[in-house]
């Protein structure tokens, strides 16, 4: 770096090209910086598209050996990038929910003793049957997934009418 500024011995023509090169490089790098400045705005405007796309990438997950889950117990699994839970209720009904608390995105847990879904971060409570937000800060119910119990596992699919 230092030599570039120091040696006047470089021939005049070389000097010219060096100037031109520097100008082109500075212009190119300047464009990079401008792009970096525009990046937040691009990401801001593309948020809904990203959300739709990430939701669309996964529409079905099989929970292996899910059918062996005892009554009154729950099992965590990954639905795409999100944690989800499968609950086998005492009345033999099955419920699967995205376990991302709608408040600030912590992972909610099923508490079988109290028969509730509880988010420990800020104390949000959901109904384990419907995913409805019962008390605490959550603004919306948990997203429900469709459940199909088979011999090899439990197949969980995206509810086509629900929005993520």
């Amino acid at each position: 770096m230092k030599k570039e500024y120091n040696h006047k011995a470089v021939p005049t023509e070389g000097e010219m090209t060096r100037g031109a090169f520097l100008k082109a490089a500075a212009g190119g790098v300047g464009l990079c910086y401008a792009a970096a400045a525009g990046y937040p705005i691009y990401r801001y405007l593309s948020s809904p598209i990203e959300k739709v796309e990430s939701a669309a990438t996964v529409s079905e997950v099989t929970v292996p050996d899910g059918q062996k889950l005892a009554k009154g117990e729950a099992k965590m699994f990954k639905f795409g990038a999100k944690p989800a839970m499968l609950i086998h209720h005492q009345d033999d009904s099955w419920v699967a929910l995205i376990a991302v608390c709608t408040h600030l995105g912590c992972t909610a847990q099923y508490e079988s003793a109290k028969n509730r879904i509880f988010c420990a971060c800020h104390g949000g409570v959901y109904d384990p049957k419907t995913g409805g937000n019962v008390s605490g800060p959550p603004p919306r119910p948990l997203t429900r997934l469709e459940v199909k119990v088979t011999a090899d596992g439990v197949v969980v699919t995206q509810n086509p009418t629900a929005k993520t």
Binding site: P83, T107, F118, A120, C121
Partner: peptide, 17 residues
């Protein structure tokens, strides 16, 4: 709830935010 939060921090599960 503080106890629950500490439990999460103590268990340090893979999916803990």
């Amino acid at each position: 709830t503080i106890g629950n939060l500490l439990k999460i921090l103590h268990e340090y599960a893979l999916e803990s935010p």
